[in-house]
Design a protein around this nucleic acid. Structure first.
Lengths: 132, 132
DNA sequence: CCCCTGATTCGACATCCGTCGATGGGTTGC
DNA sequence: GCAACCCATCGACGGATGTCGAATCAGGGG
């Protein structure tokens, strides 16, 4: 299952053309601290969506595959080898997109995904100063 | 609903007796980076559990209530005003305990919850250097 | 024009999960 | 010992969620 041909492995087109980038569904200025004051109901609602998006093993692996891929982006065909069917992969990628964690763009035959850095920063800030 | 009496608001017993602390269910040395290399299936399984625990609005509020409470701990009766029934609060607190995010201890009539710092640090480390 | 490939969407299904009321177990106080 | 309170567990219910196969949309060649 999954691919079987090296049709699109590592195709970065020498990054000469600057990538246009698509917007994610949410701009997300959110995520107050977490240890300083109790979250309100709305804050918790918005913040929980992001944690929930990373709360599935398959989604976490997909996100890690995109985040760790060289160039900061990855074709779907490069990351669909996580043990589930290809429609399921597409479903999880959509969830990550809706949560604002990934952005997608179609270039010719293939669709590329990349990490949305601002949302990650917000999550890290939400976890607070325990990282010290 | 929920309480109705100020029977145990802010009772820190002047923290004279040093708190013994109970162990959480998991020691959890886990959580590799996230942007450096793709997570394995097992790593994703373990890490997703923690994110999943914070992926519910009620749990996130409960956790924030404990984390932001003075003294680093909170009685259940102080944090059970999140809009759901008391059994539901207990259910969510158990989930947070099982995920290793909270530790509980009974002192007399009341049960106190406190944050498990190491797990938070691991999650922050997992999110990587996006916080910069 | 038709077909092949990549990716999303659709419809269906089983399971998980959040929620509640009722019950039980544990402490304190009368 | 009994009543009142705090908290956890149980059993049940409805909705959300992960998964798949089949169908559909989008591009690129023959």
């Amino acid at each position: 299952m999954a691919i079987g041909f090296d049709t699109c492995q590592h195709r970065h087109m020498s990054n000469s053309e600057s990538l246009p980038m698509l917007e994610p569904e949410t701009a997300a200025p959110c995520c107050p601290p977490l240890t300083e004051r109790p979250l309100t109901a709305e804050e918790a609602e918005r913040t929980a969506k992001m944690f929930k998006a990373l709360g599935d093993p398959v989604r976490l692996r997909l996100f890690s595959l995109v985040a760790s891929h060289e160039g900061g982006e990855a074709c779907v065909c490069d990351i669909s080898d996580v043990g589930v069917s290809q429609p399921t992969v597409s479903h999880h990628l959509k969830k990550l997109r809706e949560a604002g964690l990934l952005a997608s763009e179609r270039r010719g035959t293939w669709v590329y995904y990349r990490v949305e850095p601002s949302v990650l920063a917000a999550m890290g800030q939400t976890l607070g100063r325990y990282s010290a």
